[in-house]
Design a binder for these strands. Sequence first.
DNA 1: CCGCGCTTTCCGTATACCGGAAGGCCGGAT
DNA 2: ATCCGGCCTTCCGGTATACGGAAAGCGCGG
Lengths: 261, 261
Amino acid sequence: MTNERRSVLHRALRILETIKNAKDGLCLSDISRRSGVPLTTAHRIVGELHDWGALERDDVGVYRVGLRLWEVASVTPRSVGLQRVALPFMQDLFETTHRGVHLAIREKDQVVFVERFLSQETATDRTLPGMRYELHATAIGLILLAYAPLDLQNEVLTGPLAVPDWHPPVTEREVRQKLADIRRLGYATTPVRQEYISVAAPIYGPASTVVAALSVILPNTESYGPRLAHLQGTTRGISRALGAPQKRTGYAGSSDMRKDG
Amino acid sequence: MTNERRSVLHRALRILETIKNAKDGLCLSDISRRSGVPLTTAHRIVGELHDWGALERDDVGVYRVGLRLWEVASVTPRSVGLQRVALPFMQDLFETTHRGVHLAIREKDQVVFVERFLSQETATDRTLPGMRYELHATAIGLILLAYAPLDLQNEVLTGPLAVPDWHPPVTEREVRQKLADIRRLGYATTPVRQEYISVAAPIYGPASTVVAALSVILPNTESYGPRLAHLQGTTRGISRALGAPQKRTGYAGSSDMRKDG
DNA sequence: CCGCGCTTTCCGTATACCGGAAGGCCGGAT
DNA sequence: ATCCGGCCTTCCGGTATACGGAAAGCGCGG
């Protein structure tokens, strides 16, 4: 709180973030309170954002994210580009399996969800596009961590490994083991809330690096073998569509899957 | 150019806009040149945007829209909310008709495209989500104009009516006539590039106001009757899903369709 | 080797931003 | 009817913050 940056721009961005994190818009005073920007200053900044169209204001004075900002974001290559390519594949997968399907990418040391398809049953899932989680907390995140640069892996693994709502692995050693398994097998699984299991696999880009990951959520009463096959068929399809070089045209072998350092 | 506003924020937003309008990212000097912001100043602002994650920078120094900004935009109610609801309907329509389908909303005096489905044949279509056009230039825009507040209609109609790549109506009188027809019939058609025709219909929100419009693009060798029926079935479905009150359970009658003032 | 275009740092200037104080507005409680 | 509390808005003097020209790195191609 002490050494906060004090530029208009930084504050404006913090205000946007604040509004994003609110369920359903905020009035001016709420913006000021939650963002920590003094009311008068918030008033000025919000006004300017609103004039431009980055924020919209309804008739009771609640501000929400504006269309103009969405327009700018509609050309974001990492998310929107990927989304367009992956969507039809995800849909096929969803129609084959009738299980929740998620697409996510890594941003720094977190995982950001980009798109999803949900079945009625799995619809309790609260994960929406645009949300962030810790990398080690989900199967999809573990995939992204397993193929991330080594220094980032180390940074994450030596940092605090918050325990998610499912059980361990929580120690650095255990996660490292899990990551090694993932690289060896080419997929990851984690339990989800008592009764489900998440199975995830990597998606490759043109440079043959992992650019995203896809996951399927199943009831843990069901064996995941068949779903895994579907999943990997889908990730292979998306990777190809993204221009990833074909590797190993035959079966998915066991051994070396290592990526760059 | 003379009386430009000179706040950091305004410049930052203009820079974002500049980057959005570039096909594939811009380097710092390009940003400065195209946005008119002096190089040093652009350097500072872009740096701050980049630190925050609103912009990303690749290894050759080209800036693109960053994931962080997309995350914020992922909660935009007008676009993303609508998109989520409309997508399955649009897809059904697409699968029934195999014709290009577009979804758009009105922002001030322009139309903004939100989502689309394209057939292989219609794939020459350059309209992407996030793009803007004049309201009077397309069938989908005419729908939105026809149900817009009167003062906005007047503003648009008395302004310059740029001639698009298809033929008239171009005079105020002609457009007014067209708008009246639209309100009477509940749909709009316009020719598109010599060989196509666009058919559009309104989507209603909970307050029973028009919140969006949907269009289908057909070869003009084909009669649009059947497609119009499909289209209107779809818009009715989306309107219902958005919580629009049911109106007129029987046929679409002829008379008064007027909205608020 | 030199020149060109891009990026980055430096720094004195001035102006755009700051935010407390005060006033107006609305709606609910007394 | 009156008061009260929360919200939004305007005002304004002081200063922190942003400005942008000048010049120094940097890499590339001739």
